[in-house]
Nucleic acid binder design. Structure first.
Lengths: 238, 238
DNA sequence: TTAGTTATTACTATATTGATCAGAATATGG
DNA sequence: CCATATTCTGATCAATATAGTAATAACTAA
């Protein structure tokens, strides 16, 4: 233990599931690989190595900026760490995976000029919080091949999201500062994978989360405009 | 990316919070450090480095066996990964922390001949799932100094346990195969930090978890003997 | 002005949870 | 053998939370 560097040891990376909700579906940012045959699929989560002396959260911010061009202000949190020796055929890489969440508009705008990136629809076979792998779909519904163990990671990510949705404010990270309650409902439906009734949902939402009605209303809609709400953000805690 | 080993990179370790419940309190296995001045405290979670080509779960099993003499069959799961560069003053060590749970009798028996190990009572200041650091107490109630960021880790561990208690079978990992419902209640009370009423608890427990009454009863008690139950173990899933 | 559609509130029914009470089972002490 | 203390266990009742349905409000478009 005198010299931590004297023996070869696994590399450490972060992988990011950058998410948004659009048209009632959950999307994840994927990056095209040019070594698909080697890594098991054409598409992978963006990631990068944790440098010596760098906090993993710093690596996350760096990868977000370098590979996707997205700035700070985006919500992220740790998911889990995957370190099986065979998960990366190029060597033993231990990956600290994170979930990052942004409003769809911000995300689309940020990656518009990056052809190697795509937003893939994420679906799972299993109900509730059963657990299992996820699938990534292209716009035309074709399945995208996922590299490494990223199908497993995305499955665990959906499971985690479903669990935290009710008891934390994580769902609001998908929305801009002002939002309608219907928009929140669509986020929940996309993540949970089944429709919800508006009245009970709206009640639970206003009971459990600190929301402030702004008095302003949505514009441009064809029918009765919905009121815009704000989340009363709590002092920083996980 | 051609040679993953060509640049110095952080080391990877696992740290283990090995837990049990005894006399209505939560205990964690701690290891005495002989370098307290350097690492910030006399006591630390047992841990070890992840070797090249080794799955972190294998490291957990190895540390469990090497440092505590405990065999397999003990429940464990990943908690979170801590990697701030300053957390270990000896170098940049990224730690994948795990929770391990065993019945108190098994744990006491396993470490009886290991003077460098102790079972410390774990307490937290905060209610519910607020979050924050934990404290470790000796038998006489004196606070034990915790090394590294282990007070934070133990706080996060308590928060996690509290969250999973109702919705998973994790509480049963603290108990032997056959147990009374009162024993389960004591586990929950120790983790939640407040007393529970027996009738509602018993109902929720039998509703949410698959329990089988064995027909056998506890022996040796002074009053009405409680029935022994078994957990109907589900097929392996997290 | 009316029809069409969505947002929001009001109301009702159901399920879940919490607390109290009463009977059952056992050892102990008279 | 009987009363008593104590815990286990199930039943009962109250309070709360949740789900579903219906009614009303607000707006656009024709």
């Amino acid at each position: 233990m005198t010299d931590l560097q004297s023996f070869p040891h696994p590399s450490v990376a972060v992988d990011l599931a950058v998410l948004c909700v659009e048209d009632g579906a959950l999307f994840c940012l994927l990056m095209r690989r040019d070594d698909a045959a080697r890594v098991g699929g054409d598409w992978a989560l963006p990631g990068g190595f944790v440098h010596m002396g760098e906090a993993p959260e710093t690596t996350v911010a760096r990868v977000l900026a370098d590979k996707t061009g997205l700035g700070p202000g985006i919500h992220f949190e740790q998911l889990a760490t995957y370190g099986a020796p065979g998960r990366d055929p190029r060597g033993h890489v231990i990956s600290i995976t994170h979930i990052a969440i942004a409003p769809a508009e911000a995300l689309r705008a940020g990656i518009a000029d990056k052809p190697e990136l795509t937003l893939a629809r994420i679906t799972v076979d299993w109900p509730g919080e059963t657990g299992g792998p996820a699938r990534a779909l292209a716009q035309d519904g074709a399945a995208l091949g996922l590299a490494f163990d990223h199908a497993t990671i995305l499955g665990d990510m959906v499971k985690r999201l479903r669990g935290k949705l009710d008891y934390t404010d994580i769902g609001f990270a998908f929305l801009p500062r002002r939002f309608t309650l219907r928009a929140v409902q669509e986020v929940h439906e996309a993540i949970l994978g089944h429709p919800l009734k508006a009245p009970p949902f709206r009640r639970k939402l206003t009971d459990r989360h600190a929301l402030r009605p702004t008095g302003r209303h949505q514009t441009g809609g064809a029918f009765r405009p919905a009121e815009l709400f704000e989340l009363i953000s709590k002092p920083e805690k996980e």
